[in-house]
Simulated scan of single mutants.
Amino acid sequence: MWRHSRLLFALCSLFVVNLSIGSAWAKEPPMLMPTAKQWHQHIEHNLVRYWMQPTAFGEPEGNFPTYRCFDGSLPDPKALCEALDQPWIKPLLGRQYTRMISRQVYTYGVIYHLTGNERALALAKSGIDYLLAYHYDRTNGGFVSYLEHGKPGLNWRQRPSQDQSYALVGLAFYYYLTRDSEVEKVLIDTQNFIFDKYRNETNNELYWVLEDSDDNKAKQQELVAQLDQINAYMLMAGPLLPKQHELKWKTDLAWLTEVLVNNYHSTEQMRFYGGIHHAAAKASFGRHNDYGHTVKAYWMLYLAADYLGREDWIALATDGIELTLERALNFTPIRALADTEARQQLISHFGADGDTYFWRGDENSMYAAWWQWAELDQAAML
């Protein structure tokens, strides 16, 4: 069996706090893992205080709410809290996203795994039961992306493949903890569904969606359609499956990792493209062209390569992680430099495309979002 200690190390690093990327790569002594006491303090003072509130449990229990305020309270439509009183959130408050329920299942699994809190494990099970009762599409296969006022919001061909991957993240971790036979079957069936229905033989990759919707187009070729299958469930659950299914997943993982390297990686720029369906999707201003997605792709490449025994991919991933951490640590917005000589020095050091290497935020953040720091921290701990 593959060394799950490496995967557990990666999983646990999701919950490290105040970890500086500089300490791992700036010629300082190697960072030590947090002590057991520090892990427990983090769980109790951060995760438990928010996720073990009754407002998180849903009615019925397992019907986890997608939206809660920073203090844990549920939204009041007549007086929205500041966190939810945002123009990009308010139109979506009637939706319950499958991935959010599954991520909450994952969170309860982590709380149980590190503390033995059996109430957290029971909550994880209630979330899975709700997902399978209301979000699992037993007619078409896979999971719905979201329910809107209790009804599926998209037809099955319009659901992004990334939504399918994150529907499984909680199930995969619960399976790791329990080896539940019903969850095992859903994991196997949904993985078969994804790699059957979403497999694009023409472009040799996974489709983003199979049919256009208001928000997504079938022509899109997206990094996260490939990457998040690896990240969300394949590495976590695959090595634990019965042998015939593990071998099938391992073959699919090898193919998908090859897709990442051959289709989405730039050897010249040493980064991953967020999309490849248009030149703009590869550019610095395109979505998912940021340090977070690039280092996450190298991180998953490293873990997959270790499982598959691919030393060449391990070397590529190691070089990519080191370089991405260096770029993020020494970030300077090149376009903002008035000094031409300094600008040229940075371009010379980081590559010909001087605008490529910068913190990529989104319309709701300036420069780095919190998850980019998290993904850099996780990769730094390998």
Results as ranks from 00 to 15, higher is better:
284 S>N: 04
319 D>L: 06
314 I>N: 04
278 H>I: 04
293 H>V: 02
289 N>I: 10
340 T>P: 06
313 W>N: 10
283 A>W: 06
285 F>V: 09
313 W>P: 08
329 L>T: 02
275 G>P: 02
292 G>R: 01
287 R>P: 00
342 A>P: 02
280 A>F: 11
284 S>A: 08
284 S>W: 10
281 A>Q: 04
348 S>M: 08
291 Y>G: 04
351 G>H: 13
308 L>V: 04
299 W>R: 01
305 A>D: 02
328 A>I: 00
336 A>T: 12
279 A>D: 09
336 A>L: 08
327 R>H: 11
328 A>P: 04
351 G>P: 10
311 E>W: 06
310 R>C: 07
343 R>D: 00
305 A>I: 01
348 S>K: 10
336 A>E: 10
295 V>M: 12
345 Q>L: 11
326 E>M: 12
287 R>H: 04
295 V>A: 07
342 A>C: 05
330 N>G: 06
291 Y>F: 15
337 L>P: 02
295 V>N: 11
346 L>W: 05
291 Y>N: 04
349 H>W: 13
279 A>E: 09
292 G>F: 06
348 S>V: 05
282 K>G: 02
344 Q>P: 01
338 A>H: 07
300 M>I: 03
279 A>H: 05
349 H>A: 15
282 K>D: 01
321 I>A: 13
299 W>F: 15
331 F>S: 11
275 G>N: 01
287 R>C: 04
320 G>H: 14
344 Q>M: 13
319 D>A: 14
320 G>P: 12
294 T>N: 15
331 F>W: 12
339 D>F: 10
314 I>C: 11
348 S>G: 05
349 H>F: 10
291 Y>D: 03
301 L>K: 00
320 G>C: 09
350 F>H: 14
313 W>I: 03
308 L>I: 02
299 W>T: 03
297 A>W: 09
318 T>C: 02
292 G>V: 00
282 K>W: 01
294 T>H: 10
287 R>S: 02
346 L>G: 07
337 L>C: 08
314 I>H: 07
301 L>M: 14
299 W>Y: 14
278 H>T: 10
304 A>P: 00
284 S>I: 03
314 I>P: 03
341 E>A: 14
296 K>I: 00
330 N>E: 09
349 H>L: 15
346 L>Y: 08
343 R>Q: 13
289 N>A: 05
285 F>L: 11
334 I>W: 03
332 T>H: 02
332 T>N: 03
288 H>A: 14
275 G>K: 01
